[in-house]
Simulated assay, not measured.
Amino acid sequence: MMYALQLNEFGLPSNLKYVEVKAPQITSPYQVIVKVIAAGVNPIEWKIRRGNVSLVNFLLKFPAILGNDFSGIIYDKGDKVTEFDIGDEVFGKTQNPFSGLGTYAQYTLVNTKNDGIIKKPSSITHQEAAGFGIAGLTAWTGLVSIGDLKVDEEAKDIQQKVLVIGASGGVGTYAVQIAKHVNNAHVTAICSGENAELVKKLGADRVIDYTQQDFGEVLKKEKESFDLVLDCIGGDTYYSKSIPILKLKGNFVTAVGPDAYGENIRIVDIMKIGMITLGRKVFGVRNYKVIVGLTWRDLPKIVTYLDKRKIVTVIGHEFDLKDGVKAHELSESHRVVGKIILNCPN
C-alpha cells in the first residue's frame, strides 16, 4: 500500500484526495518502480484535473493519480531492465497522462523504453531534479530543438539575441539560464519588477517590467535584431509586438499558443491552434512555432549542465504531498515563481 493524491472526478482542487491506495506492480519486463521522493507540479495537471483537456477526458479512468515529473529511488525493476539497479537515484518524466498512475504518490511505475528516466547527479537534490521534467524540456525544446539556436562551441563566436516572455515562471527560469549558459545569447527577459533581480541572477542581461513598460516600445529601436522569442505566456499581443524585432529568419516559439495561458485544450481549441499555426506558417512574415511535444534524446547532455549547476531549478514553493490541493490552487493563480514541488512521505 502507499499514500497518493487521488482524483475521482474532474473539478476543483479539493477533488484531489490524500488517500491510501494499492501500490503499483510491474507488468512489463522494461518497467521499474520508483520510490518517489519529490514530484513536480505543472499547469497541464490542473488543466487535466479541471477537465479542460478533451482527449484526456475520454481516456482517463477514475480513480486516477495525476503527475508527470518525479525524482526518487529505484525500488524494483523488470527482468529486462539493465541500465538501472535497485537503489539507483533517478529522475524524469512519464509520457502517458492518461494512465492514471502518475507521480503524485509514494511509488510510481516508469517504463524505461517509453518514459524519460535517467540517473540523478549527486550534485542536485531530488527536489531540484523533480522540477526539471516538463518545464526544463519545454525550455530546451523551444530554444534548441525547434528554436535552432547554436549551443556551446558553435555559439561562442556569434552573439545570438533572445527574448524570454514570462521569464520568472517554471519554463521561463530554465529558458533564461539555457539561453545564457548554453546558447551564449544576450538575454532580454520580461517579468514583473518584483522578480527582476532573480531573473538577472539567472543570466538575463536586461529585464523589462511588464507592469510598468510596454516591451514593444522599449525594443522598437532594435528592429530585426532578435534571433528568437520564446513565449511562455501565450496570446496574440506578444506575437504581434514581437514581429518587428525578429530577424527575417528569426523564430517566434510559443509554449502556450494563441490563447493566454492556454487554459482550455479542447478539440475546438486544438483545431484553432492548428489553423492559426498553419496560417502564420504560410502567410506570416516570421517563423511561428508551437511546442507540441517533448523529446528525451538530449537529456544526457542536459544532465551535464545540471550536474555542473549551469542550469538550476528555481524552487518557488514546496508542499507535502498531503497538501497537494494547496499546490494546485497556487499553480492555477498564474503567480508562481519557478517551480512547485511536492515532497512525498518516506
Rank of each mutant, 00 (worst) to 15 (best):
G193N: 01
F84Q: 14
L321N: 09
S333I: 12
V268C: 09
V90L: 09
E329G: 03
L202T: 00
V32C: 11
T138V: 09
I37D: 04
S99D: 14
T304H: 11
T304V: 05
P24L: 07
T138W: 07
L12G: 09
P24H: 01
N114S: 14
I245N: 01
L149E: 04
N111A: 07
E83S: 13
K161V: 06
N68Y: 15
L149K: 11
S54E: 12
S54A: 15
G316H: 03
G172T: 06
K35W: 08
V229D: 05
I341A: 10
V110Y: 07
K77M: 12
L163E: 15
F58L: 14
V253G: 10
K339C: 06
F58E: 15
R266T: 15
T173Y: 02
F215Y: 14
P345L: 09
Q127M: 14
A39S: 15
K310M: 10
A155M: 12
A139Q: 12
I165G: 08
H317Q: 12
G234E: 01
K272E: 13
G169Q: 03
K281A: 13
G87P: 01
L330C: 04
S71T: 04
E89Y: 05
T27I: 11
G136H: 02
F62I: 05
G172P: 01
T188M: 06
V41E: 02
V41P: 00
Y18F: 15
I165Y: 13
F91L: 02
G324W: 11
G72C: 05
K161L: 12
S242H: 12
L342R: 01
N8A: 07
D69E: 02
L219D: 04
K272R: 15
Q177F: 01
A130H: 03
V187D: 09
K113C: 03
A130R: 06
K80Y: 08
L198N: 04
Y174L: 04
T27C: 10
R206T: 09
N264D: 11
K22M: 11
S99W: 10
D269P: 06
K201P: 00
A179F: 00
C344E: 05
L219Q: 00
L321C: 07
F226H: 03
Q177R: 02
N57G: 13
F319Q: 00
L66R: 01
D115S: 06
L109R: 04
P97N: 08
N114T: 12
E318I: 13
P43F: 10
Q213C: 05
L7Q: 11
P258C: 07
T138E: 09
T108H: 01
T125E: 03
H186L: 15
S14D: 14
A255I: 00
V187I: 08
M275W: 14
V256P: 08
L246H: 07
N68V: 10
I73V: 15
G262S: 10
G131H: 01
V110T: 11
L306E: 08
L137T: 13
K93M: 12
A139R: 14
Q177D: 03
V34R: 00
V53E: 01
L59I: 12
N57Q: 14
D269I: 11
Q25I: 14
S145P: 02
T94H: 05
D269H: 10
D236W: 14
A189M: 09
L228V: 06
I65F: 07
W296Y: 14
I267H: 15
D298R: 01
Q159H: 10
K301M: 09
D69I: 00
A327Q: 03
